[in-house]
Nucleic acid binder design. Structure first.
Length: 137
DNA sequence: GCCAACGTTGGC
DNA sequence: GCCAACGTTGGC
């Protein structure tokens, strides 16, 4: 199964808010980038991803899971973009910061490091395993 | 708050 | 269809 990384500014949508939504989860709306859209469209129910806090915190703080596959984002008036629904699965005992990721051998290729502007990214199996271990999971 | 990197828009 | 100008994101 594929793995993903979702970026959010905590002042806009935080991990705590995501956790508060519980098992019903929330829609991940607002994506207006075609590469990110392709990633959203490739997601399947049950696939997991990292929840990353950008700007403030700059750390992977938890794991989320896709509970509804790609469907239209009604907040997009152009009708071109869509979204998925995700729910919080578990928090990292120890958040993995961007600094930690940059220093860790094996994570040099992470999109988070190389293309900081992409808001929804794929994560390889190797990267997934390493980051989970670093965060205490 | 600044600015580099990236995407998008629009004139030609 | 090219590319300059502009807007946005996000690390620092």
């Amino acid at each position: 199964m594929a793995h993903w990384l979702y970026k959010s500014e905590p002042s806009v949508w935080s991990w705590d808010q995501q956790v508060a939504e519980g098992a019903k989860g929330t829609h991940w709306n607002g994506v207006r980038n075609h590469v990110a859209k392709q990633n959203l469209m490739a997601m399947r129910i049950g696939e997991q991803g990292f929840f990353y806090h950008s700007n403030e915190g700059k750390a992977v703080v938890g794991i989320v899971e896709v509970i509804r596959e790609y469907y239209p984002d009604h907040t997009d008036e152009t009708g071109k973009f869509g979204m998925v629904d995700i729910k919080a699965v578990k928090a990292f005992p120890k958040p993995v910061t961007l600094d930690d990721i940059k220093k860790e051998p094996g994570l040099e290729k992470m999109i988070l490091v190389n293309n900081s502007r992409l808001s929804v990214q794929p994560v390889t199996d190797e990267e997934w395993t390493i980051v989970c271990r670093m965060g205490g999971l």
